[in-house]
Design a protein around this nucleic acid. Sequence first.
DNA 1: ACCTATGATGGGAACGTTCCCATTTCTCGA
DNA 2: TCGAGAAATGGGAACGTTCCCATCATAGGT
Lengths: 341, 341
Amino acid sequence: MPRRATIIEVAREAGASKTSVSRYFAGERDKLSPALCERIAAAALRLDYRPNQMARGLKGGHSRLIGMLVADIRNPFSVAVMHGVERACREQGLALLVCNTDNDPELERTHLALMTSYQVEGLIINASGSPDAELQALTDRGLPLVLLDRELGAVEADLVGLDNARAIDLALDHLAEQGYGELLYLSEPPERASPRRERLTRFQAGLTARRLTGEAYTMSGSDEELARNIEAFLTRSAPKGSGEVPRALLCANGAVTLAATRALLRLGARLGKTGLMGIDELDWCALIDPGITTLAQPTEAIGQQAIASLLAKPGNQADAKARQHRFEPRVIARGSTRLSG
Amino acid sequence: MPRRATIIEVAREAGASKTSVSRYFAGERDKLSPALCERIAAAALRLDYRPNQMARGLKGGHSRLIGMLVADIRNPFSVAVMHGVERACREQGLALLVCNTDNDPELERTHLALMTSYQVEGLIINASGSPDAELQALTDRGLPLVLLDRELGAVEADLVGLDNARAIDLALDHLAEQGYGELLYLSEPPERASPRRERLTRFQAGLTARRLTGEAYTMSGSDEELARNIEAFLTRSAPKGSGEVPRALLCANGAVTLAATRALLRLGARLGKTGLMGIDELDWCALIDPGITTLAQPTEAIGQQAIASLLAKPGNQADAKARQHRFEPRVIARGSTRLSG
DNA sequence: ACCTATGATGGGAACGTTCCCATTTCTCGA
DNA sequence: TCGAGAAATGGGAACGTTCCCATCATAGGT
C-alpha cells in the first residue's frame, strides 16, 4: 500500500531543498531559477506528489477551506446559490465544506463549531437561528464572514442577497399593471428570517401608492387551512362602491408558491383570472397551465459575490464597514398574471 | 484578536499533560481518573478550547473528513441523497467536503485531487466521467470508496443505488396493469451513466413477457425534436390486427420527466389518455393536472447507506469483495397512468 | 518483604508543511 | 579591487496534534 510522497522526497529527487519545493507549490515560482523549477516539476511528476493540505493548513492557517452553512439544503434556491459559490471556489482553488442545519438552531451551533475546527478561511452563513454571539466571536478572531440572504442583527458582516424591497416593488408594479387590485400576500412565519420580514413590510407599505388593497397570511398550519384562507379571500364580497376587482396571490418564496399552487388547483381556480405570482423561479413554474409568473433571483451571481466578499475582507482589519450586496430580481411574466387569458 | 487555545494551554490550565488532554478529547476518557477528567473539562471550558482538526488530520491521517463528488448538484435526486449523507456524517461526527463536477470529467479529476489533498477518510463518488484509474489508485492506497448511483467498470468498490431492473419491472408492470400497450422509453444518452444503460436494457428485455411493444428514444437535441418524436409516436397508426392500443411514455429520470411533460403539454395531450410515468419523484409531479405517476427512490436511505458502507470498509484489507446495495423504488400512482380519467 | 503485573500519567518525537533567517553567488558602481 | 545589495537557495524551528514509550504508584501473589 503505497503512501503519498512528501515534500522532502520530492526535494531529494529533484536535488533541491524542501524550501524550494515549497516555494514552487506555493506559487512563488518567479523566485526560483527556471532550471530548478524544471527539476522540481519533473520530480513531482515522477513521484505523483500532491501537497498535503492538512499540513499546509496547520502551519500557516492557510487551509484553503471555505465553510458554507445552509439552513435548508433541499431548497432549490440554496442549491442554486451553492452552485455559484462552488464555481467561485473552484476558480480560487478553494474547497468547500458544506453543512446543512435543516433549520435547527441547535445544529447550527454544532456545525459552526465543526467548521471552525477545520480552520476554514471564511464562512458563508445562511442562518437558521440567531447564532449572533458565536459569529461575532469568530469575526473578532479575524475570520471573514458573509451573511447569505438572511441578516443577523448583531453581527457586523457583509450581507449578500436579494434586494427585497425592490423585489416586492417589482411584483406590486407588475400585478397592478396587469389589473389586479386586491392582493393576498402569503409567507412563512417572518420571525426568524429577515427577508421574510423585509418583504412583508414592503408589501404592506407599497399598497396604497398603487391603489391596491391587500392583506397578509402567514402559513403555519396545514394545506387545508391555507386553502380555506385562500378561498375566503377569493370569495368574499367586494368592498362597497368598487365593482368586482381582480384578485391575486403573491407568494414570498418557492415553498409558498408550491403550497399556494396546490391549494389553488384544489379549489379549482383558474390561474390568470385569479392572479398568482411568486418569488423564486422553479423548474415547474412554466409547466403549470398558463405558466406561473415569478421573480427570479440571480442565484449564480449571489453565490459568486459571496466568495468575492469573503476574499475582499482585509482579513484582520475589522475596521472595514459591513457592506450589503443586494441583487435585483427579474420578472418572468407568464399566464398566471394575465387576466385576458 | 484572540487566538484559539491549544492543547498545551489546556494542559497547563488543568495541571495535566497534553497527552492526557489529548486522550480526553480523543474519547479515551475511561483511561483517565475521574478527577483528572473533571479538571480537564473545566479547563477546556474556561479556555473555550476546540481541538484543531487540521493538526489531528496531519498526525494520524484522521481528518474526520468525507468527500462527496457529485455529477450535478442541481439535480434534486443528488441533493436528496446528499441530505442523507449529511445526516449520517453528522451522527458520526464527520464533516462533508462537497464537490460538484457539472458533469465535466476534467473537473472531476481536479476535484478528486483536491479532495484527496485534504486527506479525506472516505470518498463518495457520483461519477460524471470514468476516472477509473485515479479511483483505483486511491483504493489501492487504502482509501475507502463508495460509488453512488453510477457504476464504474474498472473500480472495485461498493455501489449504492437504485435497483434499476426492479424499477423498470415495477414501471412496466404498472403500465401494463393500467392498460397501456405501446410504450416509448425516453432517456438521456446512456453511454456514460450505468443506470441509464441498466434501465434501458431492462426496458427492452421486459416488453415481450408483458405483451407490450415499445421503443426507446434518446434525448439529445432540442425540446422541439423531443416533441416531434413524441408526436410521431402518439399519432402513428396502430399495428395491423390490433385495435387502438393506449400509449404511454416512460421517463428514465427526473430531468427527462420534466422535458417530456413540457412536450406533452405543448402537444396538447391529455395525461392519462396518454400515459406518463417517470423515475424520480419531484415536488411538482402531484401538481400537474391529473398528477404524474412516479417511481420514488429512497434517497435518504441511499445516502445513509453510502456512509455506512464507507465506514464498514475494513480500511486496509482490500480483500473485502465489493458489495452492491440496491434499493427498491416505490410506485406513486397518479392520474397520468389512469386511462379512465 | 520482594518482584511483578496493572493502571494512570507524562515526555518527546513524529506528521508535512511554511517561513524566518542564514548562506552563497553574482552584479555593479565607486 | 572591494563592498553592498540583490537574487537564489537551503537549514531548521515552528504549527497543534497523536502515539510510542517511559515512569511511577499501587496492589497482589509468593
